[in-house]
Amino acid sequence: MTPERLAKIRAVLDKRQPDLTVLLERVHKPHNLSAILRSCDAVGVLEAHAVPARQGLPDLEETELNLKGKAYNETSGSAAKWVGLQLHDDTTSAIAHLKAQGFQVLAAHFSERAIDYREADYTRPTCILLGTEKWGVSPEAATLSDEHIQIPMMGMVQSLNVSVAAAVILFEAQRQRIQAGFYEQVRLSLEQYQSVLASWIARHERGQG
C-alpha cells in the first residue's frame, strides 16, 4: 500500500460518525440499497443496518423476494465497500438494538405527528429509518420510532424515491454535524479506530478497495 493510499484511508476514517446510521426496513431493490449506502459513505456513516425483505409481502416480484442476507452483503460490497452493513431478523429487534446503544430512531413516515426533517436534531446519536417506496415503514416501525420526519413535497407526487429521500435526510444530518464541528475530530474510540483501520487495510490488500 502506498503512503498516499494509507493517508486517504485514514483521512476518511477520521471523519466517520459512529453515532449516525440508517435502518433499512425491507429495502429490497439492489439499486436503492446501493445508492443509500453510497450516501452513507459520503456523509461518514460507519455502519448501516437492515431488515431484509421477507416472504409474504404484497406486490413483490419473486426475484425481489430472494434478496436476503447474502444479496444484501454482496450489494454492500459492490456499492459502498467502506460502510458496514449489519442485518437484523426483524424490525422490533433492530430498533431495540439501536435504542440500547443510545440512538434516537427517526422514521421517514408521513403521519399527523411528523415534523419537517430539518427540524430534527441530528447531532444526537441518530438512526434514520426508511421503508420500501410503495409501503413505507411498517406500522410496527412507526410505533416504535421516537419521531416521524417528512420531506415537504410541493408537486403532484407524495414522496421521493427511497434512496433520494435517504440522501436528502443524510445530508441535512451532515450539515448540522459540520456546524457542530463533528467532522473536525476523530469520533471513534481508539480500539474501534484500530479495528476498522485494520479491516480496511486488509480489504485494500485483497484488491477490494
Rank of each mutant, 00 (worst) to 15 (best):
residue 51 V to P: 05
residue 51 V to T: 07
residue 51 V to L: 06
residue 52 P to K: 01
residue 52 P to N: 02
residue 52 P to S: 02
residue 53 A to K: 03
residue 53 A to D: 07
residue 53 A to I: 15
residue 53 A to E: 09
residue 54 R to G: 07
residue 54 R to C: 06
residue 55 Q to T: 13
residue 56 G to W: 03
residue 57 L to N: 11
residue 58 P to N: 12
residue 59 D to A: 15
residue 60 L to V: 15
residue 60 L to R: 14
residue 60 L to N: 11
residue 60 L to T: 14
residue 61 E to I: 09
residue 62 E to S: 15
residue 62 E to P: 05
residue 63 T to Q: 13
residue 63 T to I: 13
residue 63 T to C: 07
residue 65 L to N: 05
residue 65 L to P: 04
residue 65 L to E: 10
residue 65 L to C: 05
residue 66 N to R: 15
residue 67 L to S: 13
residue 68 K to R: 15
residue 68 K to D: 03
residue 68 K to S: 03
residue 68 K to C: 02
residue 68 K to T: 12
residue 69 G to M: 01
residue 70 K to L: 04
residue 70 K to M: 02
residue 70 K to T: 10
residue 73 N to V: 04
residue 73 N to F: 08
residue 73 N to D: 09
residue 74 E to D: 15
residue 74 E to N: 11
residue 75 T to C: 06
residue 75 T to W: 01
residue 75 T to R: 01
residue 75 T to Y: 02
residue 76 S to A: 15
residue 76 S to Y: 00
residue 77 G to F: 03
residue 78 S to M: 05
residue 78 S to G: 08
residue 79 A to F: 06
residue 79 A to K: 06
residue 79 A to Y: 07
residue 80 A to F: 13
residue 81 K to W: 12
residue 81 K to A: 14
residue 82 W to N: 13
residue 82 W to I: 10
residue 82 W to S: 12
residue 82 W to G: 08
residue 83 V to S: 10
residue 84 G to Y: 02
residue 84 G to A: 12
residue 85 L to A: 04
residue 86 Q to Y: 00
residue 86 Q to D: 00
residue 87 L to I: 01
residue 87 L to C: 05
residue 88 H to P: 06
residue 88 H to A: 03
residue 89 D to N: 04
residue 90 D to C: 03
residue 91 T to A: 05
residue 91 T to H: 00
residue 92 T to F: 02
residue 93 S to H: 10
residue 94 A to W: 00
residue 94 A to P: 02
residue 95 I to T: 14
residue 95 I to R: 14
residue 96 A to I: 00
residue 96 A to S: 10
residue 97 H to N: 15
residue 97 H to R: 15
residue 97 H to K: 14
residue 98 L to Q: 05
residue 98 L to A: 08
residue 99 K to D: 12
residue 99 K to C: 09
residue 100 A to E: 14
residue 100 A to D: 14
residue 102 G to R: 09
residue 103 F to M: 08
residue 103 F to K: 08
residue 104 Q to P: 03
residue 105 V to P: 08
residue 105 V to D: 05
residue 106 L to P: 07
residue 106 L to I: 10
residue 107 A to M: 03
residue 107 A to R: 05
